[in-house]
């Protein structure tokens, strides 16, 4: 497929949206490719970071209902025709897979981020951007449906008040403003972005990946739990997961050197 490139570079799984003539809007096929790639990563020990990127001056403008493509055969029988159109199942499954991915995920935001593109960014662990990035939703303005789970994710990332601003009021945020409200983690000048992003990704890919994934699982699942349950959940996770890198961390500490983690 030419609309999306998925490749491995060392420990990094690179997902690139390459449909610039449609502002990198996603088709059903692209959504399911992302879902499948991200699900595979969960059990692939060689991959320690997943990145999603667009083109030089464009991340992803969302989806375009006229160019989504054929309704995927795996969902046949789950798309009853009606005045409100097909249900957003492929969108939801892609976002769910990203959100619960066991490896670090980084969205590289360059330029326009809108609609489903915003959902992808918000479901990733890290969002870094060029100074030219503009984030908005736009779905309400176009009388579209917001049903990917972003209404769950965004208020937990930045608070309901600012989520309302983006989703309901429809504000367009510059990278600086998005960074101010905590939506973006780092903003770089466009010229430096490739180098800075590479540094950022390298650093994440050398972390103790297994430890990372356990903490991520705890954090995301515990968003929906009462405090007392969260403590018990943490305990259960601790008792049922082995982190081999613990030995290396202890050795490095003792020998006063930087640890070299395997990710296991």
């Amino acid at each position: 497929m030419t609309d999306i490139q998925i490749s491995q570079e060392g420990p990094r799984l690179k997902i690139e949206l390459t449909r610039p003539d449609h502002e990198n809007r996603l088709t059903y096929e692209m959504m399911l490719s992302i879902r499948d790639a991200v699900l595979r990563v969960n059990t692939d020990e060689t991959i320690r970071v997943v990145t999603i990127s667009g083109s030089t001056n464009l991340f992803c403008a969302g989806e375009d209902k006229d160019t989504l493509g054929e309704w995927p055969s795996e969902f046949s029988g789950r798309g009853p025709l009606g005045s409100h159109g097909l249900p957003p199942l492929p969108q939801q499954e892609m976002i769910s897979a990203l959100r619960s991915c066991k490896k670090p995920t980084v969205a590289l935001l360059t330029g326009k981020v809108a609609g489903l593109g915003l959902d992808i960014a918000a479901a990733s662990d890290h969002r870094i951007a060029t100074e030219k990035t503009i984030i908005s939703d736009g779905r309400i303005q176009n009388a579209e449906h917001v049903a990917t789970g972003i209404t769950h994710i965004l208020p937990r990332l930045i608070g309901l008040s600012q989520a309302t601003r983006i989703l309901l009021l429809g504000d367009e945020l510059t990278a600086i403003e998005a960074s101010r409200i905590g939506l973006i983690h780092a903003v770089y000048a466009s010229d430096d972005f490739t180098d800075e992003a590479a540094r950022f990704i390298d650093k994440i890919s050398t972390l103790a990946t297994r430890s990372y994934s356990i903490i991520k699982e705890q954090t995301i699942e515990q968003l929906d739990m009462p405090y007392e349950w969260a403590l018990k959940h943490s305990l259960a996770i601790r008792q049922t997961n082995v982190i081999e890198d613990r030995a290396e961390a202890a050795a490095a500490f003792k020998e006063k050197r930087e640890p070299k983690f395997s990710g296991r």
Binding site: V146, A147, L160, L167, L168, G170
Partner: peptide, 13 residues
């Protein structure tokens, strides 16, 4: 703004 779309998004938020 388109009212129906707004109402749905607000409700799910």
């Amino acid at each position: 703004l388109p009212g129906k779309s707004y109402a749905m998004a607000k409700d799910s938020l």
